[in-house]
Design a protein around this nucleic acid. Sequence first.
DNA 1: GTCTATAGATTGATAGAC
DNA 2: GTCTATCAATCTATAGAC
Lengths: 226, 226
Amino acid sequence: MTLSSSTRERLLDAAEEIFAREGYRAASLRAITTRAVVNLAAVNYHFGSKPELLEAVFTRRLQAMNRARVHGLALVLESARAAGRPPKARKLIEAFVEATLEHARSGPGERNFMALVLRSLSDTDHTVKRAFEDFMKPTFDALRAAMAEALPALAANELWWRLQFALGAMIRMHHLALAAESGGNNPSQPAVAEAIRLLTDFVHAGLSAPPAARSGHAASAQGEPS
Amino acid sequence: MTLSSSTRERLLDAAEEIFAREGYRAASLRAITTRAVVNLAAVNYHFGSKPELLEAVFTRRLQAMNRARVHGLALVLESARAAGRPPKARKLIEAFVEATLEHARSGPGERNFMALVLRSLSDTDHTVKRAFEDFMKPTFDALRAAMAEALPALAANELWWRLQFALGAMIRMHHLALAAESGGNNPSQPAVAEAIRLLTDFVHAGLSAPPAARSGHAASAQGEPS
DNA sequence: GTCTATAGATTGATAGAC
DNA sequence: GTCTATCAATCTATAGAC
């Protein structure tokens, strides 16, 4: 933890790291302030409370992260439009996955933040859920809109679910990569690069599979609530 | 919480439920003993400590759950062998997913336990990780062995990753179903049934996609450590 | 803005009567 | 086996000196 930055930022860095490693609930303000080499009372002075500190950690990096992903999608859409043809599903997946990983590796802070995001995806703590609620949505919507152009044959409901499955596969890869990384046994960089390629293949095949034959009730055509 | 069962079992039931809902760390022994209508000191008397209580919760249902899944796979393998042909990947997926869901719905206790398993998959707490460590492995190995017969063209490494992606998709479906279920807005039973069918389609397409063209280094042919 | 000191609540665990 | 009572540790948050 560099002492050159302000107390406020050192607190955000330390919180990001410890929330990611220990989880929101298990992380104590004492551990965070100690890591930040800052007085315990500074949290209350600068942020007010522990929940507000978590919120500040999120808002600091969310914009940049989502912008990187949506930008990656936009590039693919643009070049497809310029060529007068629909975008390719595979290109969109690659853009999304690569933008995410590239951003997550752009610095140590971003790396910690990615770990925190991953954790938060399955954290059921009330505070975490609320702070994280609107995070995936704009990005997911952008992905869905782009993918709808690439796969016009899919019903809205079917596309929604397939994208959720794709997200699940992607999240699992991140989990395994992160666990191997911090778990001591180094999976070596090439293995991760290989995994990304395998992920793209898998997800692409799943998304591009022929639409399910409608077996009766078409009532499930509308998207999910959330 | 029925009062007809023993103190020990009422504690296990209550712990299962509250660990699943609040998470291991956030769940207090007071909340658990209150729910079980049992004295606070009973936890220490019957199990010794909080970690040991968690372990007892796991071991109570693990066997039955994994047996149901492995049995589902075995049935498919058997009938394929009887017919003298390799098993179908789709049948294996269906068997695995259905055995899991069927078991998870076989009773209120099993339902809670499934929620706890889901939580534990991404819990980074030391105690939870240790208690959960060897849980997925035997089942995953059975799935991998069966699937290797169905998809002999895939390299071991590639099959390993694809199965992990498939698991990720499955886990995500469970997460969404569970969140919708406990989140008030009822996704209606048919929607979940539809999701299972869509999941099977997605996963099957991903698993059965043609093997990746080996792009140079064949060093990644061995399976992952864990 | 940063510090010390501490309030106030909650936790896991246990001693000892019954 | 079950109870009451309580210890010791830990937590978030805050009051008030500097």
